[in-house]
Design a protein around this nucleic acid. Structure first.
Length: 534
RNA sequence: GGGCCCGUAGCUCAGUCGGUCAGAGCAGGGGACUCAUAAUCCCUUGGUCCCAGGUUCGAGUCCUGGCGGGCCUACCA
């Protein structure tokens, strides 16, 4: 049974810099998950947005000689532009500097303070002024040899003592552990769940949630002590709830909150696992809110050396080295469809994969141009000649049709399973399998030979009918990944009206005689020359 | 330093409970076909499963130790 509703989020993107491939990946993944739920008729809410407070934003703005607000406006616009190019279908884009959000953070802080979950305590520790961060006793001693653990040769650390506010995270660690173990709070894939359980087993301390205004002004002020702003993660995490009306005024907001919270899936990167799988749920437990159902922690695209793509590192100028992909670079070369297909099928969520321009080109050409695109083209051209441009219907169902029918049904079944499995790779594999089955079927039946004789014509039409039907179902199953191109194909295959998975997954959904469109050029082949060279 | 994870064909990756697990796709080689975007179909060359020990009748799989890589490790997010 499909769920009654689906609320999915991307990570709240940090605007210290422009978006990179990792942002595109998370956005497409969340968009595709949202798309599958919509396809299946599940009411869906898809939230994305930008995290705009904190030290790095303040620093980046200062380095550029502009105000933090100007910096955020500009960067947030870059993220919006990225989503526009990726053609994501998000329902909301929240900025944490918006009043609708900061007001909620203030109310959350007041509540936690009133309930005793936030308390004042002295903090004393090693502080590196250059890195602008505190370091633990052991790090300074063992890694830094008494100096900054990150840059022991360059940075000194100083002893700083000040009062700070803490969130009583330790008080909720046991309840969190229980929720993870009994599955009510699911962390996927399993290795990330292990990681969190390991983190909890090491013992959880309380979380310092205040930042002195002497060092950081760009944040939400603590409502009970104006000397501090709120630690940016506490601020940022609540975006997932503030966006759907939590602690907002009015009946409409309350209804929205009741409808959408808790979130069904938070798509995140593996680097922000602790914040989302420990800080966030313990904060929710403290304010008495239900926990999100699933955390899906994805991996990264790595460069040829196995390093993070998102970190702009200099290559050791090997002569044949291709430039690292930027998001715009990917989109320029592969287009929206190619980029979406690659990102949605590049890797199992959770694992890393190495990026290679040629691998992406081959995948896009093989699956889209040679696969779906070419199949559509050859079938529609043959149908234009042999069937008068009309869908010929599905007579003669026999054992020779069995593989094609089974492959189409498998593709539809894989799409229908996404709410349970979140496995978009399985859908892509099933779609490929269906296209392969059609190719094989065509090779075996050779309708282009059959049409040459009057006697062969009926059989040729039957073969084209089954092939067209299977193609249509495969395209339906892949629609959330490639909505634009496959919408065009759907129309060419004679389907009109709003998308209706339950009806269209049937091979006989289109009646015989339905007019077919001209073959669209859905997926142009990407030539080797299109790849940027060093 | 501690926690978690990864290392399988030229490339990207599957391999569930230890027993058809030596696999797929792409690339490379050969052939077929011609409806189609030089596409599709068939056949085919590739591997010390990172290394060394161990447990076992049997290890890609489990254990120990290396080597290489990644994330986190309470104030960068």
């Amino acid at each position: 049974m499909p769920p009654e509703r689906f609320y999915v989020t991307t990570p709240i993107y940090y605007v210290n810099d422009r978006p990179h491939v990792g942002h595109a990946y998370a956005s497409v993944l969340a968009d595709v998950l949202a798309g599958y739920h919509r396809l299946l008729g599940v009411p869906t809410w898809f939230l994305t947005g930008t995290d705009e407070h904190g030290q790095k934003v303040q620093d980046s703005a200062a380095a550029r000689g502009i105000s933090p607000q100007e910096h955020c406006d500009e960067m947030s616009a870059h993220f919006r532009a990225l989503l526009a190019r990726l053609e994501t279908r998000h329902d909301d884009f929240l900025r944490t500097t918006e009043e609708r959000h900061t007001r909620v953070v203030t109310r959350v802080l007041e509540r936690l303070h009133a309930s005793g979950d936030i308390y004042l305590a002295p903090y004393e520790g090693w502080y590196c002024a250059r890195c602008e961060r505190f370091w633990s006793e052991t790090d300074v001693r063992e890694r830094g040899g008494g100096r900054c653990p990150e840059f022991p040769d360059l940075h000194e650390v100083a002893r700083i003592a000040e009062d700070n506010y803490y969130f009583r995270m330790s008080a909720y660690a046991e309840r969190l552990r229980a929720a993870i173990e009994d599955g009510t709070f699911s962390i996927e894939p399993a290795k990330r769940r292990n990681e969190v359980l390991g983190f909890l087993a090491q013992g959880v301390a309380d979380l310092c949630i205040s930042r002195s205004r002497e060092r950081l002004t760009w944040g939400v002020p603590l409502p009970f002590d104006e000397r501090f702003v709120c630690y940016v993660w506490v601020d940022a995490l609540f975006n997932y709830e503030s966006a759907v009306g939590y602690l907002a005024d009015g009946a409409e907001a309350a209804a929205r909150h009741a409808r959408w919270w808790p979130a069904d899936v938070h798509v995140i990167g593996k680097d922000i696992l602790t914040t989302h799988a420990v800080y966030w749920p313990t904060l929710l437990l403290a304010v008495g809110e239900p926990l999100p159902r699933r955390i899906l922690a994805h991996g990264w695209l790595l460069d040829r050396q196995g390093g993070k793509l998102s970190k702009s590192k200099r290559l050791d100028a090997a002569a044949d080295e291709r430039p690292l992909p930027t998001v715009d670079g990917l989109l320029d070369v592969f287009g929206t469809d190619g980029t979406r297909w690659f990102l949605a099928t590049a890797m199992k969520p959770g694992d890393d994969t190495q990026f290679d321009w040629d691998v992406v080109r081959e995948r896009v050409n093989t699956d889209l141009a040679n696969g779906i695109g070419n199949t559509a083209n050859r079938l529609l051209k043959m149908a234009a000649g042999a069937c008068d441009g009309r869908f010929p219907g599905l007579p003669d169902a026999g054992p020779r049709e069995a593989p094609v029918r089974a492959a189409a049904e498998a593709a539809a079944a894989a799409a229908a399973a996404v709410p349970e499995t979140l496995d978009t790779l399985a859908v892509a594999a099933a779609v490929r399998g269906c296209i392969d089955a059609v190719s094989l079927y065509l090779s075996d039946e050779a309708p282009w030979k059959l049409v040459k004789t009057e006697a062969g014509l009926p059989r040729a039409r039957a073969v084209l009918g089954w092939s067209l039907a299977a193609l249509r179902v495969a395209a339906l199953a892949a629609e959330p990944i490639l909505p634009r191109a496959l919408g065009e194909l759907r129309a060419a295959l004679g389907v009109t009206g709003p998308l209706d998975f339950a009806r269209e997954r049937a091979l006989d959904a289109v009646p015989a005689g339905t007019p077919l469109g001209a073959p669209p050029n859905l997926f142009p082949r990407v030539p080797p020359e299109a790849i940027p060279s060093a």
